[in-house]
Design a protein around this nucleic acid. Structure first.
Lengths: 352, 352
DNA sequence: TGACGCGATGTAATCGATTACATGAAGTTT
DNA sequence: AAACTTCATGTAATCGATTACATCGCGTCA
């Protein structure tokens, strides 16, 4: 019989109500309960009685209450924000991954802050600070490196322990969960496909030297050659860095040089598209004279003519999975240290 | 002669220092000053004496102090965060704009939160709440609409007054600053270019009906025809929505139909690329049989073959300018209500 | 010399939520 | 019926910074 004294919360003398966002105290006053009860009614509804719950929710509705994220974050030491670190925002490869991340993060009530490294150490330092200050509850790394590791090279561990997850590219030596595809198997499959089309001199356009992805894809290329009974020829390996321009340069070498090839496996779609464009400009027909295959299946691959045969990476799913792993980590649940998603070969007209 | 009693700040009993991020009190204790002085030394260095300043900065360095953003934000009512609202994160058109925004926002110490609408009212509502709760200090709108306007259709003004800036697409009826290009002039120039190549039956693939950009670009197309002495023929206007698929559909109509055209002006590059791909598949040669021009100059435009003639929008610059306007607004400075950036025609091989 | 102003600094209120602890009522066990 | 739980709720501490206001010492001016 609620003889309980309703808490008397003094009205805010500062500004006329309505000209100022409602605070939790406004809701409490209107509902005739304490701020603690309002907080509980919103975050753990099962902990308050039904009549009080509806009174609170009505009051929330009436004054248009929205919790202040800074106050909530200060007290609870969680920000409901995730940082997504990527090397280059303009790179089309990342956009679908971002979409996948957003799908899951939004659903879970998390916001997404973009950390575009852009090759700048200042940016890296700032984003590292985001991790150290609790600005975000976790981070997704798409850059293949950790960020802002040690303070003074003393090998001292970072003072923060924000959960991190690496996508696409394993980070050597870092004990953080990874979500990626089996690059080696996929590259082998692409190479075998070219060989299966009767191609015998299959060139390879490489990624950046030393890169983890590059190592795997190159190994897959060699395995594919081997399995098809073709000899590996180091002359058929052309340097590259995954960029469109690298594909153009590779094409120039093929056009000029004494090399004869009947197929090119590019370790990224961007390079394949650059290469095909340069070949077309030189009057070399794809796939009649040279078959071309790529890796990634970015949107572009199906838009160019001839459309590009490539390895499909489930980028949106990589993003979704990465977000799920990160949320598990944040919630303290166990996670798989390594998640491998399936790729498949998409055959289009660039390989006849 | 500093006989001034150094404030005695009790040590934190909770956890051994070093296992916990440093707070402002740790710095104050080490430097032998009050927390107020530390705060001033960091935010308004000219307000503290030189010796104290260096002591504080040394202490900051020594304990690795980084201000807690939630606490700062709660007290100062600013978050140093900006929300960027866009309709579709995967759309390549936006990536360079994001880069431009990031360039300037980072420089000014602001972080960027991505609000991907994705056609979902829930997302829109959540992002609107970001504006209302002070989660962000301002927002960039790339979606051509305001978000989360009125609470109950009562016409009551939104309780928030966070600065907003619209990019690319003017928002009808909204009194917020705009940064865009002169779509009409650009479309006229593209149309005149096609006419100048001797093309007489120039089709137009439209954007979404009613869209502001579409109205301007269509008007520019008609002006261009008129100026070139060509009659406008409503049959040559094909429906579209800026998507690649719309370009494919337009191509199908041209291939099947009784229409004869010798040029197509697509009001977006994506449609132009879809159209060119479908024409190529049907054996229709571009530019010999049909010249094609687009609008936007997305990366794709120079990658396809034939490379696409198009209107270059300075997307990164649009982002930069938009961010500058928003920062001015946040700082309470006067801003231009309408900023128009220059476009130019990029002639490539799709128009011969 | 006294009043005043000013610069440097400390004290403590404040931002708005969450949550540990206290309290009182009702139910349950022995 | 005493003792103990449990549930619903209130009170007040707390998160970590910024900042209004107070204070102190010193120089300046009348």
């Amino acid at each position: 019989m609620r003889l309980r004294s309703a808490p008397s919360i003094p009205p805010d003398p500062r500004r006329p109500a309505g000209l100022r966002p409602a605070r939790i105290a406004d809701v409490a006053r209107l509902a005739g309960v304490s701020t603690a009860t309002v907080s509980r009614a919103l975050s753990t509804p099962e902990r308050v009685s039904a009549p009080v719950r509806v009174r609170v929710l009505e009051a929330v509705e009436q004054v248009g209450y929205l919790p202040n994220p800074a106050a909530r974050s200060l007290r609870s030491q969680k920000s409901r924000m995730v940082l997504v670190v990527l090397p280059d925002l303009a790179n089309a490869f990342f956009s679908r991954i971002l979409q996948g991340l957003e799908d899951v993060l939004f659903e879970a009530g998390y916001g997404m802050i973009i950390g575009n490294l852009d090759g700048s150490p200042e940016k890296e330092a700032r984003f590292a600070a985001f991790l150290a200050t609790g600005h975000v509850d976790g981070a997704i790394l798409l850059n293949g490196r950790l960020i802002g590791q040690t303070r003074d090279g003393q090998g001292e561990a970072a003072p923060t322990a924000v959960p991190l997850v690496a996508l696409c590219e394993a980070i050597p030596g870092a004990a953080i969960p990874q979500v990626e595809v089996d690059n080696r198997v996929a590259a082998r499959r692409a190479t075998l496909h070219l060989a299966g089309q009767g191609r015998r001199r299959i060139a390879y356009v490489a990624g950046p030297a030393g890169n983890v992805l590059e190592r795997e894809r190159f190994a897959g290329y060699r395995e594919g050659l081997c399995e098809a009974g073709l000899a590996f020829d180091a002359d058929l390996v052309l340097a590259g860095d995954y960029s469109l321009e690298a594909g153009v340069r590779a094409a120039e070498i093929l056009i000029r040089g004494p090399l004869t090839v009947d197929a090119v496996f590019c370790s990224s779609d961007a390079m394949a598209v650059g290469l095909m464009g340069a070949l077309a400009d030189a009057g070399i027909e794809v796939p009649r004279a040279v078959a071309v295959a790529g890796f990634d299946d970015i949107e572009l691959a199906s838009m160019v003519r001839p459309a590009l045969t490539t390895i499909h990476q489930p980028r949106r799913e990589i993003g979704r999975m990465g977000a799920r792993v990160l949320l598990d980590l944040i919630a303290g649940r166990d996670v798989a240290h390594h998640t491998v998603l399936e790729t498949h070969l998409v055959v289009r007209s660039s390989t006849g």
